[in-house]
Amino acid sequence: MRVLILREPDAAARTAAELTARGHEPLVLPLETVETLDAPPPDGAFAAFAVTSAHAVAPLARAFPNDGRPLFAVGEATASAARNAGFPDVRVAGGAADGIGALAAATLPHESTILYAAGRTRTATLESGLAEAGVGCAVWEVYAIHPVRPDATTVRRVIAGRAPDGVLVLSVGQATALARLCRALPDAFSPLPLVLVLSERIAAALPAELRRRARISSDRSLTSLFEWLG
């Protein structure tokens, strides 16, 4: 199958390699770029760290190299990035940011505070979950995601004359960008492709006609999305 990838370039290249290994044809059209922010981490006696995106791992590792404190990761992909960056005690919350609060409350000392390495644009899911669990949270913004708007010539060159069979949609920003592309170039996305979506929250950002084509990951992982491709 011909599968359109909308991730930022480095992540798109990794995903393209995985798709190729599975016998699919990746079409890379980055609709996001990632900026690393340079603010220093806040001061504090933090019992642990939390990350909800692999984009946050490298800045955290630079500031706290080989740190032995627990690191709570939202899912296995982020956890793997943290282990590869040298964090020895990585604890996985099962794919949902709100699960980190319960996991932290169950495993950290009472009245602990976590340092959350976060994106500039985010939901308040993790902060709310930690507050409800009675765990303190200090937010350190370490990256920002910016939209990319390719021109029509670039889009048509990437899809090479016919609509992709599938599109990977891994963030709300990508969902919004895909909807914009389909409105601007309806002929390039006709018939509408299968839309492979990482979560219900992301699917909710799609317009109705794309939601009807959506297949949602059962465990918020790329692997489960690949299974829809056959």
Rank of each mutant, 00 (worst) to 15 (best):
P109H: 12
V90Y: 05
L222Y: 10
A39C: 00
A131L: 15
V155P: 02
L194M: 09
A45W: 00
A93T: 09
L194A: 06
E25G: 01
I114P: 03
A106C: 00
E127N: 06
S190Y: 12
F226W: 13
A160V: 09
L115G: 09
P42A: 10
A16G: 06
R122S: 13
R69T: 04
H55G: 02
L229S: 04
D43M: 10
L6P: 08
V172E: 13
A63M: 11
C182T: 13
V169A: 05
A106Q: 06
T113H: 08
A144K: 09
A104V: 10
R2S: 10
A61L: 12
A17K: 13
A144F: 02
L126T: 03
A131R: 15
P42R: 09
A50T: 04
L103Y: 06
F226Y: 15
F46H: 14
P26L: 04
V158H: 07
T123F: 12
R201L: 00
P191C: 09
R156P: 00
A175V: 10
G166H: 05
N84H: 10
E132L: 14
R69S: 00
F46C: 14
V172Q: 10
V135Y: 04
S112K: 12
L29C: 07
A205T: 08
I100A: 07
L225I: 08
R2W: 00
L115K: 11
G119Q: 11
F226E: 07
A77V: 08
L168Y: 03
P109K: 10
A77C: 01
P150V: 09
T15C: 13
L210E: 08
D151V: 07
I159K: 05
P40Q: 08
L31F: 05
D165A: 05
L210W: 04
F64E: 02
S218Y: 01
A17I: 06
A133P: 06
E200L: 02
G86T: 08
L229C: 01
G95E: 00
F49I: 01
A203S: 07
S224G: 12
Y143R: 03
H55P: 01
G119W: 13
T52G: 04
P207V: 13
E132P: 00
R180P: 00
H146E: 13
R122N: 13
C182Y: 00
R183A: 15
A184M: 09
R83S: 11
S224Q: 11
E35Q: 12
A205L: 08
Q174A: 10
V57Q: 04
L225V: 08
R201G: 03
A144W: 01
R69G: 04
R91L: 06
A56G: 12
V34L: 14
I159C: 03
S221R: 14
A179C: 10
E8S: 15
E111K: 14
I5R: 02
L178M: 02
P41K: 07
F49Q: 03
G119K: 08
L130F: 12
